[in-house]
């Protein structure tokens, strides 16, 4: 069991204020699998991801990753091996930068402090832009893109990180069928290469088609496991209609 899990969350509790948003979460994400993270709005999906990335400080609990030698390490030691695409990338779209430049930023982590991108990095950025189907947009200023195109640029940036773990917070929100197919094809390719992919997902219709594993979350872990064993009406109902007496206000 330990060998095949790429990420292990152990008794994680997170609170922004007095109320806990996540309570005692324990989970393992399998290596080389695509896992859906499912739950209603406000369930704590994004919060869990942020805690996994050290972007919010948990109250208790820890997250361990597995490195190349299958040793357990913390997030800090593995930063360059993890790519993250947030739910809303709230950048200044008028920033003086081109699509090509943004994708190239995906290489910065590998370069480390002070080093400049090399031709190899530019080539990788170019290929990733090709993969997401935006090669002809390379020199555009980023404000001159549609919402779906913007999302694909940030996907290309994550791909350019050439990570082992990809964490995507709702990559399919607000994209059309065509873009959804492009994105899913790319994610499947990553999984085929043995990478671990976590996706926060809202469309329950496509869960069976897209994912290997699923995690139901609503403040606590409701259920977790392979889709064909875990994904059923009852669990969905339990997740979405849970009485959240510990959660929301009052």
């Amino acid at each position: 069991m330990k060998k095949e899990s790429a990420i292990q969350i152990d008794k994680l509790t997170v609170a922004y204020e007095a109320q806990p948003v996540l309570l005692n979460i324990s989970l393992a994400f399998k290596k080389g699998k695509m896992t859906a993270i499912v739950g209603p709005n406000g369930a704590g999906k994004s919060t869990m991801i942020k805690a996994m990335l050290g972007l919010v400080e948990p109250v208790t609990g820890e997250v361990v990753y597995q490195d190349v030698d299958q040793e357990a390490v913390s997030y800090k030691e593995l930063k360059n091996r993890i790519a993250y695409v947030p739910q809303n990338t709230s950048v200044d779209w008028d920033f003086p930068t081109t699509v090509r430049d943004v994708v190239l930023m995906g290489r910065y982590g590998h370069l480390g402090w002070f080093k400049r991108p090399k031709n190899k990095d530019r080539e990788i950025a170019r290929q990733m832009l090709l993969k997401v189907g935006l090669p002809s947009f390379a020199s555009r200023q980023i404000s001159q893109l549609s919402g779906g195109q913007r999302q694909r640029v940030f996907l290309a940036r994550a791909l350019a990180q050439e990570a082992d773990v990809y964490i995507m917070d709702e990559p399919l929100a607000g994209v059309d069928m065509k873009t959804e197919h492009i994105i899913m094809k790319l994610l499947k390719q990553l999984v085929a290469e043995g990478k671990t992919v976590l996706v926060v997902h809202h469309d329950l219709q496509t869960v069976e088609e897209y994912f290997d594993d699923i995690v139901f979350i609503n403040q606590e872990v409701i259920a977790a496991g392979p889709v064909d064993e875990t994904f059923d009406k009852q669990t969905v109902k339990k997740t979405y209609h849970r009485d959240r007496n510990l959660g929301e206000g009052e």
Binding site: L55, Y84, F95, T97, M105, Y108, W113, K115, P117
Partner: peptide
């Protein structure tokens, strides 16, 4: 000049820059 790449990335997308380990 020295911090060109770091300043650019941080000014554009501070959270991303953090997840890269800067």
């Amino acid at each position: 000049v020295l911090f060109w790449k770091e300043f650019k990335c941080y000014t554009f997308d501070p959270m991303f820059s953090r997840t890269l380990g800067f």
